[in-house]
Design a protein around this nucleic acid. Structure first.
Length: 433
RNA sequence: GGAGAGGUGGCUGAGUGGCUGAAAGCGCUCCCCUGCUAAGGGAGUAAGGGUUAAAAGCCCUUCGAGGGUUCGAAUCCCUCCCUCUCCGCCA
């Protein structure tokens, strides 16, 4: 949600900014609706005031033992008038809310122009893609040859876009998660958090998945309206929903490992090989809740925290700033981390780090008490993957593949693998099937 | 699943139809007193919204959520959600 005051006072600036996303903000329509709301609200409030004062007069008259029938009749008529005015106000207010809730966030000034992915701006690279003296395979082939990446079984159990991992590959996946959590909690100052994997509508509205992107979510049937979380951003950020955080508690830094569930509606046929784009994947998420003046610095720091994981894993990557057209509706600015995948011979997204500024905070009424004003003001929220575990597994498999199809294990993961140095194709190394 | 008790401001907690946006306490802010420490005294202190260029002031809304009764609801009625206690079941 945007600052309503800004929308009223400088709708042209809002329209100019949103136009960079290709979003057309109907200034005239908004201002007209807002003026109508104002008119009705003044009317309703003045009617309510009359009702309140006269009702009190009835109480006083009755206490004095006077006759109150005439007064009651009069106020009753007022009530009918009020009900009508309230109905109009609700109708207009509802339309206005819908318009406001549908507006995307304002972009930060340093977001590059552009309509799609191709205009994203690379800002740095780290590491060199590995050179192989053989033809490198992709993770789907490597994992299948090891007998440890099993899409067939997954299809039997659930369907396409799911995976079953066996033996050492399953363990490597878990090792990645534990490694990431350990780095973020012991070195980067994040508090490890365990959260529900189902979220309600209010939570999903708060972070911006609802109402516009419901088709991306899996809904759970039953009496309560639950959705499987598409990211731990939802439960972690909503921890501060409808609350006023004291200034001395900021910044708040949270991390959680959760599965993530996405319907991938609209990406039919895209990335169908292997386990790159699945309905269920694991991710270690990083969330910052900060004072507004700190959010830019926090965004750089959070992104750096995610980068540390790739560096320690020895995976080549680049950082890109998403262009205006590619930046998500709730974000003011987003950095994507793209890891080198030899199987695809290109960099692919493995983390997305965004500054939402006050957009989510306004939707969820997450505030902090600003000591300078003494008043509650919207917080700034940020999040990023630190990093996607499924894609990290893909990257390790492809970047650490050996000529014989074995997978070397990055140094930092060996403690989590019982000292094991490589995953090899031996039947005893995988679970019985 | 059965039985019961509850959900009130940043926190604890009083409040069964008008005098209650809300006693009291804690916390916090400011002031006074006290030459440290400790203690004491006084004042202030919910959020959201409207009116305003902005503020002050004034007004509206909010006592878990949504409906209803009433001239008037924290208070009465209905539905739902959540928390706690006991019993049962259970990873």
């Amino acid at each position: 949600m945007l600052d309503p005051r800004l929308l009223r006072n400088d709708p042209d600036a809002v329209a100019r900014n949103l136009a960079r996303r290709g979003y057309v903000f109907d200034r005239g329509g908004f201002l007209k609706l807002d003026a109508e709301r104002k008119r009705l609200q003044v009317e309703v409030e003045s009617l309510r005031q009359q009702r309140n004062t006269r009702s009190k007069a009835i109480g006083a008259a009755r206490a004095a033992g006077e006759d109150i029938d005439a007064l009651r009749k009069e106020v009753g008529a007022l009530g009918d008038k009020l009900a009508k005015a309230e109905a109009s106000l609700n109708a207009v207010g509802g339309t206005l809310d819908e318009v406001m809730r549908g507006l995307p966030n304002l972009l930060a000034d340093d977001v590059p122009d552009g309509v799609d992915e191709s205009a994203n701006l690379e800002i740095r690279r780290w590491g060199e893609p590995p050179e192989f003296d053989f033809e490198p395979k992709d993770h789907a082939d490597l994992g299948a040859a090891l007998g440890m990446l099993d899409l067939e079984s997954a299809a039997k159990l659930a369907g396409s876009r799911f995976v079953v991992l066996h033996g050492d590959l399953a363990r490597l996946h878990r090792a990645l998660i534990q490694f990431m959590l350990d780095v973020h909690t012991t070195e980067h100052g994040y508090a490890e958090t365990y959260v529900p994997y189902l979220a309600n509508k209010d939570a999903l509205f708060g972070t911006g998945q609802l109402p516009k992107f419901e088709e991306d979510l899996f809904a759970v049937s039953g009496d309560s309206r639950y959705f499987l979380i598409p990211t731990a951003e939802v439960p972690l950020t909503n921890l501060v929903r409808e609350s006023i955080v004291e200034a001395d508690r900021l910044p708040i830094r949270l991390t959680a490992h959760t599965p993530c569930f996405r319907s991938e509606a609209g990406s039919y046929g895209k990335d169908m090989r292997g386990m790159f784009r699945h309905h269920q994947f694991e991710k270690v998420e990083l969330v910052h809740i900060v004072r507004p003046e700190d959010s830019r610095a926090a965004h750089e720091e959070l992104t750096g925290n995610a980068e540390v994981i790739l560096k320690r894993l020895g995976l080549a990557y680049r950082v890109v700033t998403l262009c205006a057209g590619d930046t998500g509706a709730a974000a003011a600015k987003t950095y994507d981390l793209e890891v080198w995948l030899p199987g695809q011979n290109r960099y692919r997204e493995i983390s997305s780090c965004s500054n939402f500024e006050a957009y989510q905070a306004r939707r969820m009424r997450a505030r902090w008490r600003n000591p300078e004003t003494g008043r509650p003001e919207p917080l700034h929220t940020l999040n990023g993957s630190g990093v996607a575990a499924g894609r990290a597994l893909i990257a390790v498999i492809e970047n650490y593949q050996q000529a014989d199809g074995a997978i070397a294990i990055p140094e930092v993961l060996r403690p989590y693998m019982g000292g094991c140095e490589a995953i090899v194709n031996e039947p005893r190394m995988r679970e019985t099937r």
